[in-house]
């Protein structure tokens, strides 16, 4: 929560160094990609590769600046994190992504719903999973049948709306 005065923490910030490396990698990928573009600059001399190159050099510069800031310990203190809830949500999103076209919208989204509730303290999956599936099904019915959104249907949806 608190951010102590920067003077107190002149220590090396390894995580920030990783960020700097990530920025440099993105810049490298952009330069590599722009190199294979045919530069049809025409009259202007500025083609499709020019702006990506400028952005890449900007990112390289920022990466260098991040290294300096990391070595000086200029980054604000990071709040302590509870890792399991974060992983539950990521797992929920990943499960929905994988299940979406297999089980349809309602079941896949019900899993996401239950896992997110789990992350925020409702640990009883036997209760939250059915609630999530029923809720997601109601949402599916409203949005796909009334508002004509294309939401993937699965066995559950076909059972209750044979036309879907």
């Amino acid at each position: 929560m608190t951010s102590p005065e920067p003077q107190n923490q002149r220590r090396r910030d390894t995580a920030a160094l990783v960020v700097a490396a990530g920025l440099a990698v993105i810049a490298g990928v952009m330069l590599w990609d722009s190199a294979r573009l045919a530069d049809l600059g025409g009259y202007s001399g500025v083609g499709p590769a020019s702006v990506p190159r400028v952005v890449a050099f900007g990112l390289l510069g920022l990466s260098l600046w991040t290294v300096i800031a990391a070595l000086k310990g200029d980054f604000p203190e990071r709040p302590a994190q509870n890792v399991p809830p974060v992983l539950w949500i990521i797992a929920g999103l990943a499960a929905q992504l994988l299940l979406l076209h297999v089980t349809g919208f309602s079941i896949a989204t019900g899993v996401l719903f239950a896992f997110t509730a789990r992350a925020f303290g409702k640990t009883n999956l036997a209760m939250t999973l059915p609630i999530g599936i029923v809720f997601a099904f109601a949402v599916w019915a409203v949005f796909s049948q009334l508002l004509m959104l294309h939401l993937p249907a699965g066995p559950l949806e076909h059972l209750l709306f044979p036309g879907a």
């Binding site: 929560m1 608190t2 951010s3 005065e5 604000p76 709040p79």
Partner: peptide, 10 residues
């Protein structure tokens, strides 16, 4: 800008 990041300002 601090509160936007959920932090208490200096």
């Amino acid at each position: 800008s601090a509160v936007e990041m959920h932090r208490v300002p200096a």
